[in-house]
Amino acid sequence: MADNPWAWQDGRNPYTWTPFQVLDLPPDTAGRAAIDARVRKRRQRVARAPERYSVFGREPTVADVNEAAEQVRDPEARLLAELRTHRPERIPKGDQVAVPPPPEIPLPPVVVNTDALSRLAPPPAPRHFERLWPHGE
């Protein structure tokens, strides 16, 4: 039988040192593979720079990570940990409205419409030319 996590030990708070906190593992992470991957990553990080990953002021060690990993795999210890952890409250998928990206609206091809163009041009008007030289000479 697992130890009582709520037992009084001076300075120990059962809600600030759970396996999920030690592993930085969301409790709804599903599947052995996903959990193991997170455990591996956490172990590496904690081994390299434990001061960057403190949990409520306490730095986890690799041994802590290993113990936490065992706890999330053991049914009784897992349940005792889940009891001490807030259920993640996320927006449910059904209520989510997926906003699609704006559609790719292609630019229309450049088409020259001569009729329309010609209508834009002023009407040909007779032009008067100054005779520059006398006619027939």
Binding site: M1, N4, P5, W6, W8, I35, P75, L79
Partner: peptide
């Protein structure tokens, strides 16, 4: 728990933890 652990969670473990909860919290 059944979902995240990938297999049905043992009923007897659930019952046992539930049963010991008052004693654990009173301790």
């Amino acid at each position: 728990l059944s979902t995240v652990m990938g297999e049905p969670f043992p009923e007897d473990v659930l019952r046992s933890v539930r049963r010991r909860l008052p004693r654990d919290l009173f301790a």
